[in-house]
Structures are given as C-alpha cells and as structure tokens.
Design a protein around this nucleic acid. Sequence first.
DNA 1: AGAGAAAATGTGGTCAGACCACTTTACTGC
DNA 2: GCAGTAAAGTGGTCTGACCACATTTTCTCT
Lengths: 214, 214
Amino acid sequence: MNDNRADSVKNKQSKIYLDIVEELRLMIQADGLLPGDKIPSERELSERLQVGRSSVREALRSLELLGLIETRRGEGTFIKVFQEHRLVELLGAFFLLDENSRNNLSETKILLEQACLQGVVNKAAQADIEDMIQWAKTQDFDDEAFFQRVFQINPNHLLERIWIVVNSYEKSAGGPNRKAPKQLYVELLHALMHKDSDEIDRIYSKGIRLSDKS
Amino acid sequence: MNDNRADSVKNKQSKIYLDIVEELRLMIQADGLLPGDKIPSERELSERLQVGRSSVREALRSLELLGLIETRRGEGTFIKVFQEHRLVELLGAFFLLDENSRNNLSETKILLEQACLQGVVNKAAQADIEDMIQWAKTQDFDDEAFFQRVFQINPNHLLERIWIVVNSYEKSAGGPNRKAPKQLYVELLHALMHKDSDEIDRIYSKGIRLSDKS
DNA sequence: AGAGAAAATGTGGTCAGACCACTTTACTGC
DNA sequence: GCAGTAAAGTGGTCTGACCACATTTTCTCT
C-alpha cells in the first residue's frame, strides 16, 4: 500500500473521514473558494485523495450537518454561507446543557455584544450606523435581529461568527428571551453614532440587559 | 415544516442519514440514555431501521464530528458529555478560510484576554490566583502559557475554548510574538488578587500589550 | 437550420458485501 | 483455578452496483 498522500502518510491514528475534513479545509483555503463555489465531486475526491467514496461521504455528510456545505443531487456539493443552521437547535434537542454551561453561554454572549458595540464605536463606518438607524425606525425586529445587524457593521467579522455560534447555542439551551422596548435600541444606535461609550454601556447593561439576570 | 417522515414509507424527501439522526435522538430520549451510555451497534441500527449500514455511519460520523457521540473501535459507540463538544473549534477552523477574519485575530484575542481577566477578578477562586502566583514565581513561562493558565482559573470555560482556537490560529498566521518582562505578569497577578480592575487593565494594555500595535 | 425529443453524462443517495483491526467474551487444556 | 487461545462482536474502510435527478450533448423530424 503506497499511501502517497504528501502530508499524512499512512496516518492510521485518526480516522480517514477526519483527514478528509482537514484536506477539504486546506483545499478550500488554498483555492480560495468562497460560499456558493462548487467543490470537487465525491468520486473525484475519492480518487484524488486515494480513499473510498464512502469515507469521502462521511466527511461531506458531517460538514453538511454542520451547515458548512450544501449538496444538491444531480448537481454537486457547494460551500454554504455560514448562517444560523438548525443544527444547533438539534444539539439542544440532544442534550440539555448543565447550569454551568448555560451561564457561560449567557455571559460570553453579553461579553461579545459589549465588545462588538465598542468595536462599532471605534471602527464602523458612520454611514452604516445611519443606515441601521433608518432600518430600526422602519422595521420590526427582535433582540437577536438587532445584534445580528450590529455585528454585521462591525468590521471584526470573526467576532460576528463567534457570536453566531454562541447565540445559537444559547437559544438551543433555552436561554432567556431578551426583548427590550424598541426605543432603547434606537437610543443605543444614536449613542453609537455619537461615539458615546459610557452611554452605550449604560443603555446596554442597565437597559437592554436589565430584565434578565443571570 | 412537514418534516414528518417517522414512518419512512418511500419518503424520499429527506436524506436517510438525517432521518437516522432524528431516530437516534428519539431513541436516546425514549430510553433515557445518558452520557457514557452505549448506543446500538451500527449493524443493529442498520437492521432495526431497515437502512444500509453506510447510511447509519453517515449519521453517526456526523454526530461524532459534532462531539455528541464517541466511537471506540472494537467496543462501540457511546454518548458523550456535551461539555466536550467541539463545535466552536470546528467552525473556527472553517471560518478562518475567510481572508477578512484573519485580520481580526489579534483584536479578538486581546478582547478575550481582557474579558478573561475581568472574569477572574469577579469569579475566580482566590486560592487559584495564589497558586498561580506561586507558579509564576517558580516556573518559567511565556506569554501564551501565562494566559493559558489564566483562562483555566476563570470559571467560564467556554471563553477558554474560544481563546484556544483564536490563539492557535493567530500563531499559525504568524502573529506577533508577545513577551513582556516576567515582573509584569507577576504584578498582573497581584492586581488580580487585589481585584484592582483599573490596575489590571493598565498593566495589560500598557504593559504586556505594549510592544505590539494592532 | 431550428426546435424539440431522446440519449448520454455527471453527480449525489443508498445499499450490500467483503475485509481489516481491535476489544471483549467464551472456551479449552493444563 | 488460570493462562492461553479461539470466537464473536464492533467500528473502519473499500469496492461495486444501482437509483434519482440535473445538465449537456446528440439525434430526429419538420
């Protein structure tokens, strides 16, 4: 058996499908593939990586359940825009989080949101904030939708992605359903526009986060 | 959603492996299985659900990647403690193929560290801090090892997990090699013990994070 | 030549069976 | 009783075969 896979040489330590997940990650990274792009077919991957098609499928199905890729019968497999997937809800359905984890989730989420708000103050485009004020005035939204947008206008999208995960987890764990008066959100946006950090912190901590105590 | 295929009568609407995931969920719930418990073997599931073993494996491998189950060759498949999930790690690995996110690594890391320090002030056991002071005085360590320990004594281990990912990726992305005089770290620990938030922030931001500018 | 139909091709979806590697259990001979 | 070995059970992987669906190519009839 000449397992000539440049990097992992006969690495029986880990399971093949995990290797493939990693290979795919590298491949996507190397080729600069973006959401919507097509990745090689199962058969081609199987041949290229010198593994059975079933192993390739185990890897792809895993990534699909994770929401990272999407497969369309007869067409192919495509990279998916990462968004909130029902998967995380599934997690909640599987196992309940213990009290401690739940608190961690809540705390971490708040922390990310506070950091995001500061980030917006320091680095977001003023125009984005103004747009969001218009949006807030005309649209209906809940707490989640609000912060989703706030994270979008923060240039640090890594933070956004972490928040998405944590937020999903918290929801699936049956976290508190936060919802403050719309007015507060609008005030928060104005404070953001005026770069009034203290006011932002006050509205967020004392106002929006008031109702639920963790 | 008309996701009603429990009966599975020629219902080609959804993929088999997703059905199996759902079946497993119900099975676990019905039998009241807990972490550590063993679930039926692949072959038994295959027969019981009247599906191919490869489909069963696709489902199991997906759940395994999610960290919901654990498989041990020759033994079987077991339900895993939810705490050990690695969703954050996984998603993190794929997030970072996004070029833009890479630039946010340093910023996010600092943010996590600051948050961790505040968390230690508010919630860590005093004894842990004292232990760490002893450790710091007698051992040799670098910046990474120091914060690794700080995160460990912070009760919020979710934060730790996130940091681990961000940190490792920053390293692999060739981030700055931070290293402050040992004395500063010791001072930081003392400030932690005295719960002097301002001092902590000062030492961290102006001292330890002095050299590198982001 | 053009439009529509039919066939070929490509791709994911699923299954069955065959081995392998490893662990647990049962059995056997002393 | 005990050690050593055989058998059974279980996950890990591969191969090959179909099916279902979508796209592309080819063919046929006007």
